[in-house]
């Protein structure tokens, strides 16, 4: 996928859209759309406030812990599925179901079981991120060329050596792609979780801004979140491309 590979010249058209936003905002035609410039002013104002920083810290923590758990579970399970036919057949149907299932419907279950706090948000992140990580790690291991495995065997590699020195590295590009996609899904998960719980983190802020009709605040928050999400996606995409060089000869 090259979606995230676009560079500056293409992205320059965002300036056109921002200008359009500014103009519409100034005319006051759309009640919910304050001018871009005042949203940015508000952003500068609210980002350093303790309330915002606290929400950011809480969200960041839930996001990181959730992602680490998802990677910690997802990669080994994916590698196992790639290596073992039985494990693959046991788990693959479920992974596929949860990959495209409406996970937002499961958040209420997590809420009644784990309360309206940090745990629920972390679990929501795991739930959103883990399936694609499993699937890509599996695809990575399955895509390893048989001759590479035979090479390792013929030179007398033990199973552990084969895993640490061959499988993990040969499957690395796909594993990283899975982690990147998992991280993007996790951003959506963390926000959906907080919107539904709505008394913690940014969910709480959204609630306050929403009920007080603070449009500029609201947009400032949305813009900040979008910027974070885009930066995460782009940053991980960049890291992935740095690894891709040695996998470039492989067919996806």
């Amino acid at each position: 996928m090259k979606i995230y590979g676009f560079r500056v010249p293409l992205m320059a058209s965002l300036i056109v859209w921002i200008a359009l936003w500014e103009v519409i905002g100034r005319t006051g035609a759309a009640l919910v759309l304050p001018p871009f410039s005042s949203v940015v002013e508000r952003m500068v104002e609210i980002v350093p406030t303790p309330t915002f920083l606290k929400a950011l810290a809480m969200t960041g923590e839930a996001y990181l812990i959730g992602n680490l758990i998802a990677i910690g579970i997802g990669v080994p399970v994916g590698v196992l599925m790639g290596r073992s036919v039985v494990a693959d057949r046991l788990l693959l149907p479920w992974v596929n179901i949860f990959l495209s299932a409406p996970l937002s419907a499961l958040v209420p279950v997590i809420m009644v079981l784990f309360g309206l706090g940090m745990t629920t948000i972390v679990l929501t992140v795991v739930l959103f991120a883990v399936w694609i990580i499993v699937l890509d790690a599996r695809a990575g291991v399955r895509g390893i060329s048989p001759s590479l495995v035979e090479m390792a065997r013929s030179y007398g590699a033990t199973p552990l050596q084969a895993f640490a020195k061959i499988y993990l590295w040969a499957a690395l590009p796909e594993i990283l792609a899975g982690i990147r996609l998992g991280c993007i899904r996790a951003v959506k998960g963390v926000i959906i979780g907080q919107l539904l719980v709505s008394i913690v983190g940014f969910g709480h802020l959204f609630e306050i801004y929403f009920s007080n009709f603070l449009m500029e605040h609201f947009w400032a928050l949305v813009l900040t979140l979008f910027a974070f999400a885009f930066a995460i996606a782009e940053g991980l995409g960049y890291l992935e491309r740095r690894v891709e060089y040695y996998a470039s000869s492989r067919q996806q």
Partner: peptide
């Protein structure tokens, strides 16, 4: 492509659910 692709690339990565309260306003 130049005009429309970037906003959608951002949207693809962004948590669009955050816009739901706004839709309710509007």
């Amino acid at each position: 492509e130049w005009l429309i692709a970037p906003p959608f690339i951002v949207m693809q990565a962004a948590p669009m659910a955050a816009l739901i309260p706004l839709l309710v306003f509007a």
